[in-house]
């Protein structure tokens, strides 16, 4: 199991009059090389949850393990550095973390902090630049000359340069145009497929959940409401409505057809492709020529 949460609770400013619980009794597991999407409204505890993953926040109750690392309320900061390297964090609007004079130096910053010597780190930076789809001419430029989308790629390259095994993404496509969003999501998909990275994605985009995630966790008021496959989560339409969450477009559409009597024997389709495939199957079983 790549990630295991066991009854994790977290309270901000614990043991003070201002104590506010942000997570209560959260338990779930993500298998090795898994792809988990976390959904839920603003303030549901998603951000607090992902900050547990590399112990930027340590649980106030319970414990979690990420591969060989275990974090408990008493884990000391000295033990955390290997974990921080193991879990790469891409925060919302990660371009705001850029600071170095050149793009290369910025990407090399993380690996150097974890003890890689500067020459190797810079070489690694060049590789990462290519990985996120920027050519070598960018290496010596200032990160602040770039467009917003390019800056974000550089920031992500800076996280990937630490060779994490788990990649945590907090709304990585926010503020990008649709093309940028598509390219960004396929980059993560490629990393997941080709390098076996475990991915934890916080998102509001149900289309992305349907298309990429293998597992979905639904958060509300600091508790984990449900965890399951996208098919399991999105099939329970009535329950989703009570949780005030949207269906992916294709599922909404399929749902409307279902109300008119169309059956979905293979389960509610979640993507346009899935929907078309199921429609085509019904078309041909009825033995009619296509229009």
């Amino acid at each position: 199991m790549a990630i295991t949460f066991e009854h994790v609770g977290y309270t901000y400013q614990a043991n003070t009059p201002l104590a506010t619980p942000a997570l209560t009794d959260v338990s779930f597991t993500v298998p090795d090389h898994g792809y988990l999407a976390i959904i839920g409204h603003t303030g549901s505890g998603k951000s607090t949850l992902i900050q547990q993953l590399n112990a930027l926040l340590k649980p106030t109750t319970g414990q979690l393990t990420v591969d060989q690392f275990t974090v408990t309320p008493t884990t000391t900061n000295a033990d955390l550095k290997p974990l921080r390297r193991h879990v790469g964090m891409v925060f919302q609007f990660p371009e705001s973390q850029l600071f170095a004079e050149t793009i290369r130096q910025d990407i090399a910053f993380g690996p150097q902090n974890f003890g890689l010597d500067p020459d190797k780190a810079l070489k690694l930076a060049d590789e990462m630049l290519a990985l996120v789809g920027l050519d070598a001419s960018y290496a010596q430029r200032s990160p602040f000359e770039l467009s917003g989308g390019q800056m974000r790629r550089v920031a992500i390259a800076g996280v990937l340069a630490m060779h994490p095994k788990v990649l945590v993404l907090d709304e990585p496509t926010a503020g990008l145009d649709p093309q940028g969003r598509q390219e960004m999501m396929s980059l993560f998909e490629r990393l997941h497929r080709e390098q076996g990275l475990t991915i934890v994605l916080v998102t509001h985009q149900m289309e992305d959940v349907a298309q990429y995630a293998e597992q979905v966790a639904v958060m509300q008021h600091g508790t984990l409401l449900r965890v399951g496959t996208p098919q399991e989560i999105f099939s329970d339409v009535a329950w989703l409505r009570t949780a005030d969450l949207d269906l992916p477009r294709a599922a909404q559409f399929a749902q409307k057809l279902a109300q008119r009597g169309v059956n979905w024997p293979q389960g509610l389709p979640l993507t346009a492709d899935d929907l078309a495939a199921q429609l085509a199957a019904q078309w041909s079983t009825k033995g009619v020529d296509h229009v």
Binding site: P178, A250, A272, L275, A276, L279, A280, H290, V291
Partner: peptide, 24 residues
């Protein structure tokens, strides 16, 4: 549309997916 900075409308995505399966 994606080149114009817009998302592809769902119905257009579905139409493409249907055409690939011989439904027009």
């Amino acid at each position: 549309l994606i080149e114009l900075g817009l998302d592809v409308p769902f119905t257009a995505k579905l139409a493409t997916a249907l055409r690939q399966r011989g439904i027009t």
